[in-house]
């Protein structure tokens, strides 16, 4: 029935990555750049989860609906999921630091445009 699930997920994720990249490249406002970074991050998470999907797979949590014997054949790949948990935390950390820097820049320059940051160009 239609496209495979992982293809749909990967297309969505890569589209989000492209939208985020466009936002990072084209906007001059620091907050919008940070939002673009967030989109980029989220898209990559979706792509990573999509690579772990197997046809007809379900969550790798063993309960009454998924016995121990079936786990190796019916569950999706748990390794990308575990990696994505790490990636979400790191992405959150980077976003928090970027927002803190944006607040400091706004305090110092009274603007959020990256055109105001001239002296760090080489």
């Amino acid at each position: 029935m239609g496209l495979p699930v992982s293809t749909l997920l990967m297309t969505t994720g890569f589209l989000l990555v492209l939208i985020g990249m466009w936002g990072i490249l084209r906007h001059r406002n620091i907050l919008r750049i940070i939002i673009g970074f967030g989109l980029f991050d989220t898209g990559l998470h979706i792509v990573m989860v999509a690579t772990g999907y197997i046809t007809g797979g379900t969550a790798p949590i063993i309960d009454t609906a998924l016995g121990i014997e079936q786990a190796t054949t019916r569950a999706v790949d748990p390794v990308p999921s575990a990696l994505v948990v790490t990636a979400i935390v790191i992405g959150f950390s980077v976003t928090a630091i970027m927002l803190a820097f944006a607040i400091r820049i706004h305090d110092a320059r009274k603007t959020l445009s990256i055109d105001a940051l001239t002296e760090s160009k080489w």
Partner: peptide, 13 residues
């Protein structure tokens, strides 16, 4: 799309 998990994932599962 993958039909089965990798050897590492099977070991973990």
């Amino acid at each position: 799309e993958r039909e089965s998990v990798s050897a590492l994932a099977e070991q973990y599962l």
